[in-house]
């Protein structure tokens, strides 16, 4: 997952990730990519379009 630099770490992506793979820290976003099925729900809900499929 590509996290754009304008990400505001609101965590909405983490809330919809069906596999609970997104860890949102205060100023970083960490994906456990090896388990990601690329459902892209995280990309869909982002309020500022800060996520992009690699």
């Amino acid at each position: 997952m590509i996290v754009k630099e304008w990400c505001m770490y609101c965590g909405e992506c983490a809330g919809v990730c069906p596999r609970n793979l997104i860890e949102v820290r205060e100023l970083t976003l960490k994906f456990t990519e090896e388990h990601c099925k690329e459902c892209s729900l995280c990309i869909q809900v982002c309020p500022v379009k800060a996520l992009e499929q690699e």
């Binding site: 909405e12 983490a14 809330g15 990730c17 609970n20 860890e23 869909q44």
Partner: peptide
């Protein structure tokens, strides 16, 4: 832990929210 709701899921509860049930706000 807010809308992320990761902690409950670690305990096996199904608190993930579907996009149709998650308002995206600005």
């Amino acid at each position: 832990d807010g809308p992320e709701s990761r902690v409950a899921r670690w305990a096996g509860l199904r608190t993930a929210v579907k996009p149709k049930d998650m308002e995206s706000a600005a």
